[in-house]
């Protein structure tokens, strides 16, 4: 009986909390800063430089949202979160949005009560082996020792993959990526498995990257994207359409180089005009000013520019676009129309 009363009180408190936390957009505007959850550090996706200035692919999304809402790409408070604290930080309102290479899954969406507003990187679990091992396919890995981060979905995916292919493996549990690098290079395991982007970043740091190969098999789907709390659809819309604006900008050829020219006056392409606010009132519908998308794109460039600058082929990580190419180029990156 007493327990029920207690739980009931908690529920009421929770409901009240939900109701009062609903207007995230107003909170952010009043605060003048966006609280954005990022990782404590992942090469290419989020890292502070020597002056404490954050940079990276996920960070770019945060900055774009801050620019869209507040007109200032620097008005972001980056809150480093770990895999264990990220969801509570978001649920409790400590952060307004989470852009921390988080995989979109049903349970996170439904059970943890978050809204994934889109996908900014399609990742998948891959394998890295030394070239000397002479392996060209993950199907040949029977009996291998595998370095695997404990407590992640990669561990479960690995078990599924090996069971489905009737193979055995010897797991070498490790805690962090840095530890994995050391173990793998020291020969403690034959194979290192984690997200393919992480493998590429890790291989890039090796003294002789060419001595290691990434196997062609990708054994899981890891759509990574920014997420917000359930129950505040207006705020979710703002983040979703900021991401879409970056994607559409690449599709329509709006870059940080030509945006000044395109945004100065209405041009020939009506969709470009609608995005940049020279035509229509899309910004007003979102509760933002007309130049929101222009500011978001100017923050770090369009989706393609962000990709190239942080994780693209000219960076040490050297990821190819692959699945993350625009839909016309055979990728999955696709934004609904701005209309």
């Amino acid at each position: 009986m007493k327990k029920t009363v207690f739980l009931g009180a908690l529920t009421v408190a929770g409901l009240a909390a939900g109701a009062s936390a609903a207007a995230t957009l107003d909170d952010v505007k009043a605060r003048g800063k966006l609280n954005c959850g990022v990782t404590t550090g992942l090469v290419g996706f989020a890292a502070p430089d020597a002056n404490g200035h954050w940079d990276g692919f996920d960070v770019g999304v945060c900055r774009a949202v801050a620019a869209a809402v507040l007109g200032d790409a620097e008005a972001v408070e980056f809150v480093p979160t770990t895999g264990k604290t990220r969801f509570t930080a978001l649920a409790s309102g400590e952060i307004d949005m989470l852009a921390r290479n988080t995989t979109w899954t049903l349970s996170r969406d439904v059970d943890l009560k978050f809204t994934f507003v889109g996908v900014n990187y399609y990742d998948g679990q891959g394998f890295m082996v030394p070239k000397g091992l002479g392996v060209s396919s993950a199907k040949e890995l029977d009996g291998a020792t595998v370095c695997i981060q404990t407590g992640t979905t990669t561990e479960l995916n690995l078990a599924d993959f090996f069971r489905a292919n009737n193979m055995s493996y010897e797991p070498v549990p490790i805690e962090t990526n840095a530890e994995a690098q050391q173990q793998y290079l020291a020969g403690a395991c034959d194979v290192y498995t984690t997200d393919a982007s992480g493998l590429a970043a890790t291989r890039a740091t090796f003294e002789a990257p060419a001595d290691h190969v990434l196997l062609p098999e990708i054994i899981s789907k890891e759509p990574l994207g920014p997420l917000v709390r359930h129950g505040d659809n207006e705020w979710g819309d703002v983040v979703r359409w900021t991401l879409n604006a970056l994607i559409s900008a690449e599709e329509l050829g709006i870059t940080s180089a030509n945006i000044g020219e395109l945004g100065a006056a209405a041009g020939d392409n009506p969709e470009v005009n609608r995005i940049l606010g020279t035509e229509g009132n899309l910004g007003e519908m979102l509760g933002l000013d007309a130049g929101w998308a222009k500011a978001a794109i100017m923050a770090g460039g369009n989706y393609g520019e962000l990709f190239e600058k942080n994780i693209g082929e000219n960076t040490p990580i050297a990821l190819s676009r692959g699945l993350n190419a625009q839909w016309q180029d055979g990728g999955l990156i696709y934004s609904p129309p701005f209309r």
Binding site: T40, G41, T202, P316
Partner: peptide, 11 residues
Amino acid sequence: NAIRADANWNG
């Protein structure tokens, strides 16, 4: 960890 996330110092 954050410093290692800088592409210059990863590793």
